[in-house]
């Protein structure tokens, strides 16, 4: 399961759509479409700035939804955003519209596993992706074993997006444990940027997702993005 995270409509919708086509052609299986939020506490400086630019260019839930509805490719679609963006739309409506647009699940960076119930009881029915982290305790991992929808998003570094992929031994053991005991795939995210990182991630888990590096490449030009994409997509 190889995934790319891209900010919806960044740097503009045309380039973004083109980037998604390239991702598909180069061997990726899914994309996470980021709907930007003004105060993204899980993001490092680069994605924070990208989000702010996208918001300035008018990217919103509605604009992202329009794009998702129009998408004809074969990549699986996930949405990644922050709680207030969905809350502002209305959790019931957001969930319904995203589902109709073909979205498989939603990753909410500031919605920990224990608050999924808040979203669900307020009408959000689409699968919410569960997180594991280097800080996960035994009790957390026992709960993750019961998850039967989507995948487990293993945030592989302590910190914000754009850090370096370098899981310590204890974290590797947690990844390994979950990989062997969960009912759904375990996907590593945060800090993965090179082919070597991607290869290591595939040895440790079922998949990976690349965010900051992908958005960085795209901001420096579609050609640069394309050659990088074909390199990491091939692993």
């Amino acid at each position: 399961m190889k995934g790319l995270y891209l900010v919806a409509g960044y740097p503009d919708f045309e380039t973004f759509s083109h980037a998604v086509e390239i991702a598909e052609a180069s061997g990726f299986d899914f994309i996470e479409v980021g709907i930007p939020f003004s105060d993204p506490v899980a993001d490092g400086p680069f994605l924070t700035k990208a989000a702010q630019e996208a918001i300035k260019n008018g990217v919103s839930f509605e604009r992202a939804l329009e794009w998702l509805r129009s998408y004809k490719g074969s990549l699986k679609l996930y949405v990644m955003t922050y709680a207030n963006v969905l809350w502002a739309v209305g959790l019931g409506r957001a969930s319904r519209e995203l589902e109709e647009a073909g979205v498989e699940g939603v990753i909410v960076a500031d919605l920990p596993n224990s608050e999924h119930s808040f979203f669900k009881s307020n009408g959000f029915l689409l699968p919410l992706i569960s997180f594991a982290t280097p800080e996960s305790r035994e009790s957390d991992m026992e709960m993750l074993k019961e998850i039967n929808e989507g995948f487990i998003y293993f945030v592989s570094v302590r910190g914000t997006t754009g850090g370096r992929f370098n899981p310590d031994e204890e974290t590797k053991e947690k990844i390994f444990y979950l990989k062997n005991h969960c009912k759904v795939p375990v996907v590593l995210g945060f800090g993965i940027s090179t082919k070597e990182d991607a290869e290591q991630a595939l040895q440790l888990a079922h998949g990976f997702v690349i965010g900051t590096e992908a958005v960085k490449r795209l901001s420096s030009g579609i050609k640069d993005f394309e050659s990088w994409c074909f390199e990491v997509g091939k692993v």
Binding site: A42, P134, E135
Partner: peptide, 12 residues
Amino acid sequence: GGRFIPETLIPA
């Protein structure tokens, strides 16, 4: 109320 924070902070 609640705890709307990244999962990494939950144990803390």
